[in-house]
Design a binder for these strands. Structure first.
Ligand SMILES: [Mn+2]
Ligand SMILES: [Mn+2]
Ligand SMILES: [Zn+2]
Ligand SMILES: [Zn+2]
Lengths: 161, 161
DNA sequence: TACATTATTGCAACATTAGTGCAATTACAA
DNA sequence: TTGTAATTGCACTAATGTTGCAATAATGTA
């Protein structure tokens, strides 16, 4: 079959993906994951929000409606490759948030505090707040720690004035 | 109808409930909850364990098999009256543990660390380990904190020698 | 003890979340 | 362009969470 002339450079093609899509591709490929429209949309949502999100919340925000199971598997694969981390909760549903630099498929480094606002019920990552050391009783071997603080977030404090 | 003679004193009746049942009654009534066989069994299980338990785990341990919904509601009512508190988890199911003294339906005082052993996967309450203070960024109002530490528990450390 | 009142239980029904298997489709690299 | 392997969508199943309501049981009072 005849070769079709190249109409666009690779850069023009990347640009045609939109402002954010090319970096998304890099982020995904950097972890060994293939880029798909669905994965791009999910990752983009996490980049637009600094909050931990549930699957249900994501479904409402996604630009294209795709299969629930696909989303389920995307979240798990993102976690496995160090793109997302689970955020502890006592609600019974799983929450994920974007990992900061340094997380990989081998190890997560999200030793920061999470904050849940009891007013707007958002769960925020506070990457600048480290989890303080805790002295465990004799015999316990420390692995890692997760800290969730409940309270009122700055936005809700302001709007309540 | 003829009056039936009293055969047992109130103390003998309480004793006939078994060693632990009378105190259970007191615990429940102290919080305004009625004593029932089902509630007694659930509370007894929590008293026998120093770990946080899921509904599924409780169902396997309960001496009498009663309705799933009843257990669901017992756990929620126990939490509401300050008998149990939720424990952080990322498995997707809710975990409860026995509250120490000082919790009421108005307020929970479980500012202690929880420890999850990655070997035996038990989640233990460490009431003697307080959650350290955390300095939040400007604008955030602190409510309360929950800290879960992953690692190896003393029992599992010993048995791995 | 008997009764009235009110809380609790069990059942039915439904909603949400989790998870697996497999065939069709798509991404990627040769 | 094409082959291969990863990813997706669909069907289906399991587990957990939640509410309404009628039957039942616990408690206080007479
Ligand atoms: Mn985070
Ligand atoms: Mn506890
Ligand atoms: Zn808020
Ligand atoms: Zn252990």
């Amino acid at each position: 079959m005849m070769e079709i002339p190249v109409l666009f450079s690779i850069f023009e093609i990347e640009e045609s993906l939109g402002v954010e899509e090319a970096p998304l591709k890099d982020m995904l490929r950097g972890t060994g994951l293939r880029y798909t429209k669905q994965r791009g949309e999910v990752l983009q949502l996490f980049r637009e929000h600094d909050t931990a999100l549930t699957q249900a919340e994501l479904e409402k925000m996604l630009p294209s409606q795709f299969d629930r199971i696909t989303l389920y598997r995307i979240l798990r694969s993102f976690e496995a490759s160090g793109l997302l981390h689970k955020v502890l909760d006592d609600s019974g549903t799983t929450r994920f948030a974007l990992c900061r630099t340094g997380c990989s498929e081998h190890e997560h480094h999200d030793e920061h505090v999470h904050f849940r606002c009891s007013s707007c019920s958002k769960t925020l990552c506070l990457p600048e707040v480290a989890i303080p050391d805790v002295k465990l009783p004799k015999g316990y071997v420390f692995g890692d720690a997760k800290l969730l603080i409940d309270g009122i977030c700055p936005e809700c404090v302001i709007s309540s004035n």
